[in-house]
Design a protein around this nucleic acid. Sequence first.
RNA 1: GGGGGUGUAGCUCAGUUGGUUAGAGCGCUGGCCUGUCACGCCAGAGGCCGCGGGUUCGAGUCCCGUCACUCCCGCCA
Length: 614
Amino acid sequence: MAFEPLPKTRETQKMTQDLSGSADLHAFRSHTCGALRLEDVGANVRLSGWVHRVRDHGGVLFVDLRDHYGVTQIVCDPDSPAFADMELVKSEWVIRIDGVVKARSEDSRNDTLPTGAIEIFVREMEVLGAAKELPLPIFGEPDYPEETRLKYRFLDLRRETIHNNIMKRAQIISSMRQRMIDAGFFEFQTPILTASSPEGARDFLVPSRMHPGKFYALPQAPQQFKQLIMMAGFDRYFQIAPCFRDEDARADRSPGEFYQLDIEMSFVTQEDVFQAVEPVLRDLFVEFADGASVTESFPRIPYKEAMEKYGSDKPDLRNPIVMENVTDHFAGSGFKIFAGMIEKDPEVRVWAIPAPTGGSRAFCDRMNSWAQGEGQPGLGYIFFKDGAGSGPVAKNIGEERTKAIAEQLGLGDGDAVFFVAGVPKNFLEFAGSARVRVGDELGLSETDGFKFCWIVDFPMFEWNEDEKRVDFSHNPFSMPQGGLEALETQDPLTINAYQYDIVCNGVELSSGAIRNHKPEIMEKAFDIAGYDRQVLEDKFGGMLRALQYGAPPHGGIAPGVDRIVMLLCGEPNIREVTMFPMNQQAEDLLMSAPSDVSPSQLRELHIRLNLPKE
RNA sequence: GGGGGUGUAGCUCAGUUGGUUAGAGCGCUGGCCUGUCACGCCAGAGGCCGCGGGUUCGAGUCCCGUCACUCCCGCCA
């Protein structure tokens, strides 16, 4: 096994000194299990580690000894005083061995191991920690049920892939931190016990002993604190910040907690934030992408354009398909379904999803039945062969319009195009998934590399259909474009915010904004979203007060650390890059959290349980 | 809260149209083996077929319910 080699620390260097004569040897090891090479032949060494694998040939016995740094073969035969003891060791026992480094014969070298040119002939062995029969094997790391892996996480973490993932995570975080420091940012801690906030996700609550009936909340993000840090004049803040949200899990979302590279800067425009953050992320990805391509300069795509071209505010740009408006080609055409819709409602649009190389009836039919499976009436299409368009749509709109569509989209023989029609906000999501589907089915997407973009100009407000009112669509502390004047004169639903996301390969990596640092604009914004002054005072009093005593213009962003590590490790599941994750039911199977607490603990907190009936 | 998938040995999985004693590989235990590195060979132990109910002469297999895990929707400013 070869865990990613680490730069030698002072400690490991000391350990790799050749210490001849066992009287001088360190109690546990003179070298790590990844250290010894051909030039060490003849040295008396002491190694400690886990028994990775035993190969017992009766007369000769091999043990692969493993630690964090690597694997070294230990060999033993009846000439060794340790032979009887060595015959008893089992997988995952922790042992210490003393012995001499020997060169392996030419034909018995193992080139797959860095230590493969040598082996240790063991003279003495001590069992430091025996192991019971294993609930999951380390060697070979076969697939195991997640429940078992989480319950025995300490064993699971010995396995090569996840061990390397966790090491990569540590290196990524270290690099991130250094890059931020080098860019002139300062790392500050913010409270873990804070106040519940009415906006956003469900809070984790912590009862207060000293204030019966009152609760702290764990921060969903240090949002208000980082703004207060700016108001306190510290200018440039960052933190690898733990964030807590009591929401249900997904494959890419831990239940409960996750980390953000939280960033905030004073006296900045949106452009300044981009200039500060883009190089950090880009260079971080270049450093850890193992040679895969990384977007050099992140394109900026307005929210509205992203929705129109990709049907998503987190487009995967590895997929080259760009949707286009083809309404004019259908207005008044012979394809009565679409033509009729367009005539009835001026908001109706027809969008084309080009499908280069998809020009066969079989493929188009397959897409059509997929669409029906998604609850759609179907998916209109044209496919092109022999210099003309085929299929029912082409027949109905006629040769001229078919040709115009092909020209607009740059399609020719062997290609196809699909159509969705209706009021865009109703079909956007479906159109976006059809775009992804076409790209996947036709293998059009690049498979490696990291394609970044900024999504900018998010709307400040959105219509809450359930409650029939205007709501914040994103962060309520964002600065509306146009400032107070826009809030006072424009339809709220047309106002954009200085609000932006970074998207990579279809994953929303971070979200940020230029903040609203003017109390009167903030009051107006909350007023539009239906929060009166009193709510603002009650819930954001500290913040509001701070804004009234000289607040600098400021803004920031918060890239998600776990998702960055997932992308760089190529893992589809966040639990593969988290040391001690909870399961989907938000339980920690190793520590047994959440757990019951004693009646006296509850009494102290003035809490009486009122449990749901079975 | 809702939908999909899965559930057979410690693990990965096979198990025909409902039919005798539920199999394989890995792991484990014992034995043999002096150059392996996925060592090899021989033998053995190990099963409430997730759980409960039903249909049937007969259920791992069909039906209903339920539980667990997982993926998705809701949720995630």
